[in-house]
C-alpha cells in the first residue's frame, strides 16, 4: 500500500473517530466528552490555519495566538454589546455567529496582512521574533485595555446563535464545529493542490528557484499568511463561544507555541496533522491531567521525543513521508 493511500485511510479513520466518540457520548449522556471533542475540533481549525503558513509556506509564525485572540474578542465584544443593548463604533452588537465569523475573519485577515507585509521579507529567527512581537502587542493591549475587562477577560453570558441550531446544546455546537473543521480541511486541501499551493510549497523549499521561474515569493507568501490568519481568527471566535469567555490569555505567547506544538505532534504540512495533533494534545491533558498534576512534564518529554526522533509527527509515523506527485 503506498503512502498516499495509507494517509487517506488514516485521515478517514481520524475523521470518523472524531465524530463517533462524541456521538457515543451523546447516547451515553457524557456532555464533558462532547465538549472535549468540540475543543479538539476548534483547536484543529486554528491549527489548520497555521498549517497554511507554517506547513505549506514554511513561515514559522510564533504569533498566531494574535488571530485566535482577535476572533475571540470579536465574538466577546459583539455578544457584550448585544447583551447590554449598546453600540460599538456606531454598530449594534450581535449574538449571531455568522456576522461574528465574517467580522472575525475580515479583521484577523487585515491584521495578518499588516503583520505579514512587515515581516515576510525577514526570515529565520527574525521572522519568528517579529511575529511574536506583534502578538505580544495584542496581548498587552487587551491586558491593559479596561473597556472589555482587561486582565479579567470578558464573559459571554449566552452562547451566540447559529441559524437552525440550538448552540447551547453541546451536541449541536459540536456538529457545527465539526462541520467548520471539515470545511477548513477542504479549503486547505484545495489550496495545497491548486497552482497557488504548488507555488507556495515551491517557495518554501527553494525561493531562488521559484523566483527564477517567475514566481514572486512575497505576494504568494503574503496571501498565504492572510488566509492563514483568517482561518485561525475564525477558530478564535468559535473558541470564545465554546468557553463563553475571552481573555488576554488567548493571545499569550504560550498559545502561539501550543498551536505550533499541535502541528508538530500531528505532522507538519499534512492535511490531518492539525486534527491529530489537537487530539493528542487535548487527550493528553484530559487523561494525564486526571492522573497527575505534573502532566505537563510528561507532555514536555513526549514533545521532545517527537522533535528529536519522530519528525513527521503522528501522520508521518503511521503513513510515511508526504508525497507531492
Amino acid at each position: 500500500m503506498d503512502n498516499a493511500r495509507k494517509e487517506w485511510l488514516l485521515n478517514t479513520a481520524i475523521a470518523l473517530a472524531l465524530f463517533a466518540v462524541p456521538l457515543w457520548a451523546l447516547l451515553a449522556d457524557e456532555p464533558f466528552i462532547i465538549t472535549t471533542a468540540t475543543r479538539i475540533a476548534i483547536l484543529a481549525i486554528a491549527a489548520v490555519g497555521l498549517n497554511i503558513a507554517l506547513g505549506l509556506g514554511g513561515m514559522v509564525s510564533f504569533g498566531h495566538a494574535l488571530y485566535l485572540g482577535i476572533g475571540g474578542y470579536v465574538a466577546g465584544i459583539a455578544a457584550h454589546h448585544a447583551f447590554s443593548g449598546t453600540t460599538v463604533l456606531g454598530l449594534p452588537g450581535t449574538n449571531q455567529m455568522l456576522p461574528i465569523w465574517a467580522i472575525a475573519m475580515i479583521l484577523s485577515g487585515t491584521i495578518a496582512g499588516i503583520v505579514g507585509a512587515l515581516s515576510i521579507r525577514t526570515s529565520g529567527i527574525f521572522f519568528i521574533m517579529i511575529t511574536l512581537a506583534f502578538a505580544q502587542m495584542g496581548f498587552f493591549f487587551t491586558l491593559s485595555w479596561p473597556a472589555y475587562g482587561g486582565e479579567d477577560g470578558l464573559p459571554i453570558f449566552v452562547r451566540n446563535q447559529f441559524p437552525g441550531l440550538n448552540t447551547a446544546r453541546p451536541w449541536e455546537f459540536f456538529l457545527l464545529s465539526y462541520g467548520v473543521l471539515l470545511a477548513a480541511l477542504a479549503i486547505f486541501a484545495m489550496l495545497r493542490a491548486a497552482r497557488f499551493g504548488a507555488a507556495l510549497m515551491a517557495i518554501r523549499q527553494n525561493p531562488d528557484r521559484a523566483a527564477a521561474v517567475g514566481i514572486s515569493p512575497f505576494g504568494i507568501k503574503l496571501v498565504a499568511f492572510i488566509l492563514s490568519g483568517m482561518i485561525t481568527g475564525l477558530a478564535g471566535a468559535m473558541m470564545a463561544d465554546l468557553t463563553r469567555f475571552v481573555s488576554p490569555a488567548m493571545m499569550a505567547w504560550t498559545m502561539s507555541g501550543e498551536l505550533i506544538v499541535i502541528i508538530i505532534l500531528g505532522g507538519v504540512g499534512r492535511l490531518f496533522g492539525p486534527v491529530a495533533g489537537a487530539a493528542i494534545l487535548v487527550c493528553f491533558e484530559v487523561l494525564f491531567g486526571g492522573l497527575t498534576e505534573h502532566w505537563k512534564l510528561w507532555l514536555g518529554l513526549v514533545l521532545l521525543a517527537v522533535v528529536l526522533f519522530a519528525r513527521g509527527g503522528l501522520i508521518g509515523l503511521l503513513a510515511g513521508r508526504a508525497q507531492h506527485g
Partner: peptide, 10 residues
Amino acid sequence: VLATFALILI
C-alpha cells in the same frame, strides 16, 4: 523552538 519549548514544560 519546539524542543526548547518542551524543555520549558519539563
